[in-house]
C-alpha cells in the first residue's frame, strides 16, 4: 500500500497521537526512524499527570532520535522529537516554537491530542503529516479534521490492528482519512519519506 503513496518533500513536521495501546507501536516507530530523519516530530500521548519522569527514557531506549519534553517557548529544531509533558497541553506556536499551557482538560485529557494537532495544523498547514494510533477515547479526531481542513496528510493506525480502536475509529467517522496503515506500513511510509529528503 505504501508503494502507492505519492510523496514529496514539501512536509515540514509530523504529529503523532496515541493513548491506550499506543505505547508499543510508538516504540516501534521511534526505533525504526533513522537519526537523520529531518522533520520535527510532535508526540502527544495520554499519560499519568503526576508521573513527570520516565516516559522520555522509556521511548528513548531503542531510538536513535533525540526525544525531549520541551520547556515552554522552546525553539523547534529539525529532527527532534517533542513529547508533550505530563499535565500540560503542548501546542505549536507561530514563529517556530513550542508552547505549553494548563488550559482545561479536553476529552478528559491533558495533554490533549486535539490541541497539539490543531495548533500544528494552523502553523504547518498542508505541510503537516498527522498520525493517530490506538486509543480508548475520541481525542485526536477533531485534530485530524483540522489537519485535513488545512490540506495536510492524515493517517490512522489500521482499525483491525489497533489494540483499542475507538480513537482511530472516531477520527475515521468524522474525517475522510487519507491512509489507514498498519504500524509496519507507517514505518515504511516514514522511511520512504526520509529517503526523499536524503536525495
Amino acid at each position: 500500500m505504501v508503494k502507492e503513496i505519492h510523496l514529496t518533500n514539501k512536509y515540514k513536521a509530523v504529529v503523532i497521537g496515541g493513548s491506550a495501546g499506543s505505547f508499543q507501536p510508538m516504540v516501534q516507530i521511534l526505533s525504526s526512524i533513522p537519526r537523520e530523519f529531518p522533520l520535527p516530530i510532535f508526540l502527544c500521548l495520554h499519560r499519568l499527570k503526576h508521573v513527570r519522569h520516565g516516559f522520555v527514557e522509556a521511548l528513548s531506549i531503542k531510538s536513535q532520535k533525540d526525544i525531549i519534553e520541551p520547556m515552554d517557548k522552546e525553539s523547534i529544531k529539525k529532527g527532534v522529537v517533542y513529547l508533550a509533558p505530563a499535565n500540560y497541553h503542548m501546542a505549536v506556536e507561530l514563529g517556530n516554537s513550542v508552547s505549553l499551557n494548563t488550559e482545561e482538560l479536553i476529552n478528559n485529557s491533558r495533554p490533549a491530542i486535539d490541541i497539539t494537532f490543531e495548533s500544528a495544523a494552523y502553523v504547518y498547514r498542508d505541510k503537516l503529516i498527522g498520525i493517530l494510533l490506538s486509543g480508548a477515547n475520541k481525542d485526536g479526531a477533531v485534530g485530524m479534521q483540522k489537519i485535513k481542513y488545512r490540506k495536510g496528510l492524515t493517517i490512522i493506525q489500521d482499525i483491525e490492528e489497533s489494540m483499542i480502536n475507538a480513537m482511530p475509529l472516531a477520527a475515521k467517522n468524522i474525517v475522510e482519512i487519507d491512509y489507514e496503515l498498519k504500524v509496519d506500513e507507517i514505518i515504511a511510509f516514514l522511511l520512504k519519506l526520509n529517503k526523499i529528503y536524503q536525495q
Binding site: 517557548k73 501546542a91 506556536e93 508552547s99 499551557n101 488550559e103
Partner: peptide, 8 residues
C-alpha cells in the same frame, strides 16, 4: 500573549 492559546 502566546497566540496559539489566545486564538483558542
Amino acid at each position: 500573549y502566546a497566540m496559539s492559546s489566545f486564538r483558542r
